[in-house]
Design a protein around this nucleic acid. Sequence first.
DNA 1: ATGCCGTATTACATACGA
Length: 277
Amino acid sequence: MLIATWNVNSIRTRLDQVIKWMEEVKPDLLCLQETKVDDTLFPKEAIESKGFQVFFHGQKAYNGVALISPHELDDVRMGFIGELPSDTEAIRLGEQKRVISALLDGIRVVNVYVPNGSEVGSPKYIYKLEWLNCLNRYLEAPRKRDEPICLLGDFNIALEARDIHNPKRLTGGIMASEKERLGLKSVLGENMQDVFRVFENETNHWSWWDYRSGAWDRDSGWRIDHIYLCETLVMQARSCLIHKSIRGNQKPSDHAPVSVDINWPPSEDLDYVDGHY
DNA sequence: ATGCCGTATTACATACGA
């Protein structure tokens, strides 16, 4: 089972690259962020004509998330109020289209685009912390249903120094502040693990390179696109890859795709090594 | 090194991203 995440920074601009990547890599599910288009204008037919299912939850100009799969997806849920009681907070934080989830072969895949946060202490930063708190509440529902959870997307947070090209300069700032990190850790709890770190301990693995300042040419990036797996799934993980070469495309997104290969449904023939099969 | 990039918008300059 191959599940992937990719912040495409506009689905309409990146449509050909997305279809090409689906056909070459053949993921069972691709989760997109920053589709940047209202649902009425989403390029649904172009994707369906290639033999894929597509579900989207978007808005004009900003944000927007989508799911693309060659398989049937079950129980697709859009936004926070797909899972949360429709209280004032869930409605307010659901105005920006940043969450979509579905069941894929029994796995609850939750695709998120965490707010950017602008600047530490700014109103957008407060919003980011509130949003993470709401995500935490949101995840209680699939947990209560005992669904194995795969939480993935663009988190706009680097949890550790090794996830930043220049930790001395950037730690404490936006995407690397204590409150953001605590907010995300609280969402993850004891059970969810960053599957990339199951297989790779070194720094210099990035998923986002700023368009500005020649960040790609200097390989100055951040690892802010993550795949978190519950204990049941992480035990079956075979590999987790950052598809770095995609950032070198003509007219690239500023993010590269990240994928995880999971032995799912689990087979019995794997050796248990180092905390995973 | 808060930006010189890229995307979107009742666009031809501005907001936003991270």
